[in-house]
């Protein structure tokens, strides 16, 4: 286990780029993404792991970046919403009107993107289980569910 103290320089693999930045070891991944690296797509909604607006992928699995220290992400592959380019989930969210205010959207997109990678044939129960990790206050989740289903090969 690596020990950190004071201000340290870390190398983070984000969206297939290596980012070098100075951080304090107590900083969450969310804080570092937003305040050190300018990647503001991940949003603070609760900073308590309850809402999922800050979800990013770590080695293709969704992680609430407010609950992970940035130093824990060293050596792993981080994908944020800014790293998506023409991903099926993005198109599906637009086509299905799967957002209104858009604040939770980055998080839900990353969940759906990961679901399509890890469980391309997910059934309704698994889709619900994955979508329950996040909160959307504007929609009734129907459109988000429809978007998720549309990118799975069921």
């Amino acid at each position: 286990m690596t020990e950190y103290s004071g201000v340290v320089e870390v190398r983070l693999d984000i969206n297939n780029e290596i980012k070098k930045t100075e951080i304090r070891p107590s900083e969450t991944l969310l804080y570092v993404l937003r305040n050190r690296l300018g990647l503001t797509g991940a949003k603070p909604g609760c900073e308590n792991g309850d809402c999922g607006a800050c979800t990013v992928l770590i080695d293709n699995m969704p992680i609430k970046s407010c609950l992970m220290l940035a130093v824990e992400a060293v050596g792993r592959k981080i994908l944020t919403v800014e790293g998506l380019k023409d991903a099926p989930a993005q198109k599906a969210f637009v086509e299905k009107n799967a957002f209104q205010c858009g604040y939770c959207t980055s998080g839900f997109l990353m969940v759906c993107h990961s679901l399509s990678i890890n469980h391309p044939k997910a059934d309704d129960k698994r889709i619900s289980e994955w979508l329950q990790s996040n909160i959307c206050r504007c929609t009734c989740y129907e459109e988000i569910t429809a978007a998720a289903k549309s990118i799975l090969s069921r």
Binding site: R34, N35, T40, A42, V81, E82, L84, Q90, N97, G102
Partner: peptide, 21 residues
């Protein structure tokens, strides 16, 4: 038709007050 700001909202480019420095 889709929202005017739809693609900004699915790419992380949509900016809210807390995103500005």
């Amino acid at each position: 038709i889709s929202r005017k700001e739809a693609w900004d909202k699915v790419s992380g480019k949509a900016k809210y007050a807390g995103d500005y420095v």
